[in-house]
Simulated scan of single mutants.
Amino acid sequence: MNTLRLRAAAIAATFVAIAPLSHAHNAWLLPSGTVFSKADTVSVDAAVSNDLFVANHAPLRLEGLQITAPDGSAVKPESEAKLKQRNVFDVPVAQPGTYRIAVINGGAFASWKDKATGQNKRARGTPETIAKEIPADAQDVTITQSSGRIETFVTVGKPSALKPIGQGLELISAGSPTDLAKGEKASFTLHLDGQPAKDLEVTVTAGNTQYRDKLEEFKVKTDDKGQFSVTWPSAGMYWLDVSTRDGKTTVPNAKERRLSYAATLEVMP
Rank of each mutant, 00 (worst) to 15 (best):
D45Y: 13
D45E: 13
D45K: 14
A46C: 03
A46M: 09
N50F: 14
L52V: 13
F53A: 08
V54W: 07
A55W: 02
H57I: 13
P59G: 03
L60S: 12
R61W: 12
R61M: 11
L62F: 09
L62N: 12
L62Q: 08
E63V: 09
G64Q: 01
T68L: 01
T68A: 02
P70E: 09
P70H: 10
G72M: 00
S73E: 14
K76V: 12
K76S: 15
P77N: 07
P77Y: 00
P77K: 06
E78W: 10
E78F: 10
K82I: 11
K84L: 15
Q85I: 12
Q85E: 13
Q85C: 14
R86N: 04
R86K: 15
N87E: 07
V88D: 11
V88G: 02
D90T: 07
V93K: 10
V93N: 09
Q95C: 04
Q95H: 04
P96V: 06
P96Y: 00
G97I: 05
T98E: 01
T98M: 06
Y99H: 03
Y99N: 08
I101K: 05
A102L: 07
I104W: 12
F109R: 12
A110P: 07
S111G: 11
S111V: 04
W112P: 11
W112E: 05
K115E: 13
K115V: 07
K115Q: 11
A116R: 11
A116E: 15
T117P: 11
Q119P: 00
N120K: 14
K121Q: 15
A123W: 01
R124E: 13
G125F: 11
T126R: 05
P127S: 05
E128F: 07
I130D: 06
K132R: 15
K132D: 15
E133Q: 14
E133W: 03
E133T: 14
E133V: 04
I134H: 02
I134Y: 05
P135F: 01
P135M: 01
A136C: 05
D137Q: 11
A138Y: 09
A138L: 00
Q139H: 01
Q139Y: 05
D140P: 05
V141E: 03
T142F: 00
I143P: 06
T144W: 05
T144G: 04
Q145N: 05
Q145M: 02
S146G: 13
S146M: 13
S146Y: 04
S147H: 13
G148L: 06
R149N: 14
R149V: 15
E151I: 06
E151N: 02
E151T: 13
V154H: 06
T155V: 07
T155Q: 07
T155Y: 03
V156A: 05
S160W: 00
S160H: 03
P164E: 00
I165L: 12
Q167A: 15
G168F: 08
I172A: 01
S173D: 01
S173R: 01
